[in-house]
Design a protein around this nucleic acid. Structure first.
Lengths: 279, 279
DNA sequence: TACTATTTGTACTGCATGTACAATTTCATC
DNA sequence: GATGAAATTGTACATGCAGTACAAATAGTA
């Protein structure tokens, strides 16, 4: 990316984190990044568009880190999930995203609001899919409820600690506590068969956010990429085959299932692929 | 209150709910309430002070409604708690408080931020004390954790429905679901003796928010007031005695306990009073 | 009616976003 | 090193907002 543009984004990012979005005027950004107003409006049509750029940067950075945490581990590894959550929350904290999002949500910039909304729904969807991967298909009917309870609890706790400026408790502990509660809650909702939102909420209300076929495929390919890191040549060959076959218009389901049968740590992948093929 | 001031507050309140705080300019308020700028600044030193006035109105209104819901019922009545929560959340929704608070939190008005912070901590504290009343002293060590989980889950669900503009689920259902989960969670944390925040968090971090002696006394007097509605003359006499005795510098504990022994629905009150006397 | 308090209208300051554009600098290419 | 296109700058300008100041008009009251 253009170095001037990057320069502005870095300076603005720092200012937003330090003083907040609303409190940072464009003049502040011009001063901090040593550029003129004209140049600024060459690259960004407004302060809010600048923020959109920054947020998208953060988003892709988070996604990358989350995937790298998982490399070499199974998708059904609880520690892996916990680490992913810690990383996510740390990024949020480091970038003051809680405050930033709150400000955006109350602002009048429609585009920004949409971005934050979409980001929220995607994060929720991600937690939901990870919960299914971790706890198995039996929790599927309760997966969205569980996600809401988990995310809500954790965020509420973080919020309390931020409000009281209390540094005594670590993100890691909060998330670990939330995950411990998850076990109890799963047993609870399963035994009572108690459902509030239902697993298909997204598909009904927001088809564009729901895991579309493309979305699922991308997911699978990403997962395969992660699995390939450090795999044996034989495993790599199998994974490579899957990668190509998935992309084909009419994947040969029987062959794929056979290949899946001899892949190490296939369980999570198999679930995803079978779900994908059967749609 | 001065009718002009009220007139401004009503108009501004409507505008804030409709368009949001940030999006409402003072000029909008002047137009809507048909007053001049001069008059506005006679009554309020700024837009944020106006909002503070409105929020305080809403707060006292909520408190009043919450108490009236409880009249004629025991404090340990789960339905009563549920109704109180529904009322609270309905007020929040009607006044767009979620959005309003978010905006405030991201703004630069220190006084407003403090108000919202305090309000949040007080609400949390209220939920905590109600949970103890409802589920007994045995949940005390877990009461703050439970409050955070409950409030977080419910808010997260409401947030999801607001973001997706889905009207299909009622506040009442959400709260009922949250309370059903509470039972499971209580069993869970009790059997594992798992504590994250600890019951004394407020006392350690925020002594001014914690239930001070005065605060507790006020609480008891309010509760007695509620109990007096519709009570028999005899009961009223007993309650009236308590009301006076509590206010005294050195309340006669033995007498109070004797009187408590013959009051209908004394259990909750007795807990509060004994806790108050033993401090 | 006369006195007082409230209310109004208007004009002003200061700061913010955003536009327009001519003047200047930078930089690759010849 | 000269040249021309592209990037960058500085400046002036339009607009809208919060908040101040104050003289003039109005309403309420005794």
């Amino acid at each position: 990316m253009n170095s001037r543009k990057r320069q502005v984004m870095v300076a603005a990012h720092a200012l937003f984190v330090e003083k907040g979005y609303a409190a940072t005027s464009i003049q502040d950004i011009l001063d901090a990044s040593h550029i003129s107003k004209g140049t600024f409006y060459n690259y960004f049509s407004s302060k809010s568009e600048l923020l959109i750029n920054i947020l998208e940067d953060i988003k892709t950075e988070t996604k990358k880190q989350r995937l790298s945490v998982l490399s070499g581990r199974q998708a059904s590894d609880l520690i892996g999930f916990s680490d992913q959550l810690v990383i996510t929350m740390e990024v949020n904290k480091r970038n003051n995203l809680f405050i930033l999002f709150q400000g955006v949500f109350a602002s009048e910039e429609e585009e920004l609001k949409q971005l934050v909304k979409r980001h929220y729904l995607e994060e929720l969807k991600w937690i939901q899919s990870r919960i299914i991967e971790l706890y198995g298909k039996k929790v599927k009917p309760y997966s969205l409820d569980l996600s809401l309870i988990f995310l809500g609890s954790v965020q509420q706790m973080i919020h309390l600690f931020m409000v009281t400026k209390s540094e005594s408790i670590e993100l890691k502990e909060i998330i670990a506590y939330g995950l411990r509660r998850m076990d109890g809650t799963i047993a609870d909702v399963q035994s009572s068969e108690d459902i509030l939102v239902g697993e298909w909420f997204f598909d009904k209300c927001f088809p564009e956010i729901a895991l579309s076929k493309e979305h699922k495929r991308k997911n699978i390919l990403e997962r395969i990429n992660v699995m390939q890191q450090g795999a044996s040549p034989k495993q790599k060959e199998l994974l490579g085959f899957l990668q190509n076959e998935i992309k084909v218009t009419k994947p040969r389901a029987a062959v794929i299932e056979a290949v899946l049968g001899v892949i190490d740590g296939r369980e999570d992948l198999a679930d995803l692929v079978i779900d994908y093929l059967h749609e």
